[in-house]
Amino acid sequence: MTMSNDDNTSVTPSEPGSPSPAPEPGSPSPAPEPGSPSPENRRGWRSNATVLALVVAVTGTVVASVVTPLGDRLMKVILDEPTCPGEACDGKNPKNQGCAEDAKSFKPETGNPAMLSLRYSKDCQAVWAKIERGNPGDQVQAKAAGHGERNAEITYDDDQFTQMVAVGDGEFQVTACAIPQAGRGSKYEHYCIQASEATAWR
């Protein structure tokens, strides 16, 4: 069916359901629907998402490094200033200061019922004493000639160690003693062991 408009131009209506005519070459692209992102915006969002993912990954790595044992030890060292070596180690916990990492021991294999030992850290220039088979109330002592003395008591279980005694980087003589609590029927009597910088530390 053909219809006429006001300027007598004939127009043939399209059939219902028929496809819209293709745009002529050179005609502008249809404007995007309101609210839909442009291709440029979509590329920007993807770029921002990539950056955010990288930031999260880096942050996770940093947090993981802090909660590792090494990070934990570093935090303890910071909170327990001044740090070792030398005189700054005197009276400090060898584990918290990291001195136990390079430490070597002198522990006699015979005549040592309390498994008493001396520990020496060359890096920290300090010694401490340790007891492994004591009883609550027993004491362990570390004494360095001309330097100082440290004592510790077993509060539970059967082992304990003293704080450090600084000995410097030269010659030294140290003594460790296991002191049972009186009246508790200990399996050993008060005894001591001795060592020096020339001892075969292992």
Rank of each mutant, 00 (worst) to 15 (best):
S29N: 11
L52R: 04
R43W: 00
P113I: 00
Q97T: 14
V140H: 08
I78N: 10
N5R: 10
A31W: 06
P21K: 09
E189T: 14
G17L: 12
L70E: 15
D157T: 04
N41P: 03
D72I: 06
G71Q: 02
R202L: 12
Q141S: 08
A145R: 07
G17Q: 02
P113Q: 02
D138H: 03
A166K: 06
A176M: 09
N93A: 13
D72N: 12
K187H: 15
Q163Y: 13
V67G: 08
G134Y: 05
M1C: 14
V56P: 03
P32E: 02
G26D: 06
A31Y: 06
N96K: 10
Q160V: 10
P19M: 08
S196F: 04
K187R: 12
W45K: 00
A176R: 05
I154P: 03
K107L: 13
T199Y: 07
N135G: 05
C89M: 06
T68K: 05
M75K: 13
Y191Q: 06
A195M: 02
A126R: 00
A145Q: 10
A114K: 07
T162H: 08
M3S: 09
R119K: 11
N112I: 08
R42Q: 15
A195D: 03
A88V: 01
P13S: 09
E149L: 11
V55N: 02
E132M: 12
V55P: 00
C177R: 03
G137I: 05
S20H: 12
P25H: 09
G111E: 07
G148W: 04
P30L: 11
A182E: 10
Q141W: 02
P85V: 00
S20I: 03
G183Y: 03
S20E: 14
P180E: 05
P16M: 09
K130I: 08
F106D: 05
C192N: 08
T61M: 14
T2M: 13
K130D: 10
E87L: 14
P21W: 03
D102R: 02
Q125E: 15
Q163W: 10
P34V: 06
T2G: 09
P180M: 07
A142E: 07
D138N: 12
G183W: 01
L52D: 00
V67T: 13
A198H: 10
V174E: 02
R119S: 10
G134V: 03
W45M: 06
A31Q: 10
N8T: 10
S18N: 08
C84N: 06
T59K: 01
L118N: 08
Q141T: 07
P136E: 05
C177S: 09
Q160A: 06
M115S: 14
